[in-house]
């Protein structure tokens, strides 16, 4: 094995020094350190189960080498939670039954969050393009769309109230 390198990452708000070999992906690093909410599906960019935010933008962690991320901020689905309360996306996924087996859910929620960071009022076409890299074998996607639209509405209301 090649020598490990240390990379400083901020993971869900906590700064961590991570030692990883140069060929380790962010997916492997995160699961190695116990962030099991990040799921491994295809490990080649096709399914989106491994999606996390890097500086607010969703990426497939299976395609991202940890050593390229010095100083960057990583958010997993667990990092969205607001203390004891669910984030509006998480709450909406529960409310609409957009979670069945749940394997795709962390990735879908991160892809949706990345969309809503840029597009607070998405059309269904916007959602379709933003989520086209996430596969779900259970829900048929319509409930996912409902949840994203609902969460977008809640987030807009929070924004205008603040």
């Amino acid at each position: 094995m090649r020598e490990t390198e240390t990379t400083t990452l901020e993971i869900n708000g906590r700064t961590r020094e991570i030692a990883a070999p140069p060929n380790q992906t962010l997916l492997e690093t995160l699961r190695e350190h116990g962030y099991f909410e990040v799921k491994s599906g295809c490990e080649k960019g096709d399914c989106g189960a491994c999606a996390v935010l890097v500086d607010g933008e969703a990426v497939d962690s299976c395609l991202t080498l940890t050593g390229t991320l010095e100083g960057r901020a990583i958010t997993t689905v667990a990092g969205l939670k607001r203390g004891e309360e669910l984030h509006p996306l998480q709450a909406a996924f529960v409310k609409f039954g957009s979670i069945q087996c749940g394997y795709c859910t962390p990735g879908l929620i991160m892809a949706a969050q990345s969309l809503l960071n840029e597009t607070p009022e998405p059309s269904d076409e916007d959602i379709r393009l933003a989520l086209s890299g996430n596969l779900c074998r259970c829900t048929g996607y319509t409930k996912v769309f409902d949840a994203v639209q609902e969460a977008a509405r809640v987030l807009r209301e929070e924004e205008s109230a603040s």
């Binding site: 999606a51 969703a58 497939d60």
Partner: peptide
Amino acid sequence: ARVFAGQMVRNT
């Protein structure tokens, strides 16, 4: 770019 891959791939 619109019809390229999915969002996560487009972002990188």
